[in-house]
């Protein structure tokens, strides 16, 4: 039996909203030691989502037997919208489940809502992702990155990112003209989360599809900062750290034909 209780429904609500436009059907893998993990690839095979929710992400977590919960994220989103952000959220499944039970309790315990969601058999590709060495790593406020990705998409369907020792330059060039945004490394002593950190082994010049970057920045509601790891000509890693877990996106680059 699986019983995972979140202190508040808002984490799961934000997670599903962040990924449901990229992937529709997902297998949630549940185990006592690893908690809940998920790997899903978008239909175009360009963007991969990797989620880890350690047992420590939960107020209570129990999973007697490893389980795979095949879920339609559109349906899960509909059910999660029925709960309030500050409700407790508990996910419950039997050992060979046909359904996932989703329970919301308001903190005053005078209202309990229960939903049963049908599970699906989902046959999906799983890719093995080894730890990669990257040419550079950038950590910046997730809202800053979201603004650049959204703004620059209005100019071009591609976003070029150039990283040097102390700055990151985002460039877009399209039918109406060109634009660039330069972000410089700095340390904010008052609020560390506002700092911009660049670790560089080698300068990087990579280009990504703006549409995918706009999907990725939907996760900026989950973490105040995002870490972007880039290497020339290989997929980039975008990581949003969660309390006791992470949401990672791997994005394949664009290149000159």
């Amino acid at each position: 039996m699986l019983e995972g209780k979140f202190e508040s429904a808002s984490l799961m609500k934000r997670l599903v909203e962040a990924i449901k436009d990229s992937v529709k059907l997902c297998n949630f893998n549940c185990s006592q030691t690893k908690g809940i993990t998920l790997q899903a690839i978008d239909d175009s095979r360009v963007l991969l989502i990797s989620l880890k929710l350690d047992p420590g992400c939960f107020e209570g977590f129990r999973c007697d037997k490893n389980l795979v919960l095949g879920l339609d994220l559109e349906s899960l989103s509909k059910v999660l919208k029925q709960g309030n952000n500050e409700d407790y959220l508990t996910l419950i499944a039997e050992d060979a489940p046909d359904n996932l039970l989703v329970v919301f309790e308001d903190p005053k315990k005078d209202r309990i809502s229960e939903f049963s969601l049908k599970l699906m058999d989902i046959d999906s590709d799983v890719l093995s992702i080894e730890d990669m060495d990257h040419d550079c790593s950038i950590t910046l406020p997730s809202s800053d990155f979201a603004k650049v990705a959204r703004d620059m998409r209005t100019l071009s369907e591609s976003l070029q990112i150039l990283v040097t020792k102390d700055s990151v330059k985002f460039m877009a060039s399209g039918p109406i003209g060109t634009g660039s945004v330069i972000i410089k490394a700095h340390t904010d002593l008052k609020d560390g989360k506002e700092s911009i950190k660049i670790d560089l082994n080698k300068s990087v010049n990579v280009t990504f599809g703006a549409k995918y970057l706009n999907d990725i920045v939907k996760a900026s509601t989950l973490a105040e900062t995002v870490t972007i790891k880039l290497t020339n000509k290989i997929p980039a890693l975008f990581e949003f750290k969660l309390q006791g877990g992470y949401l990672r996106y791997y994005l394949a680059p664009k290149f000159d034909e």
Binding site: R45, V46, V126, S128, P235, A252, F255
Partner: peptide, 14 residues
């Protein structure tokens, strides 16, 4: 014109 790569060129199916 730029071409979009897929992840399948970089990662193997497990």
């Amino acid at each position: 014109k730029m071409k979009q790569a897929t992840l399948l060129s970089f990662f193997t199916r497990s």
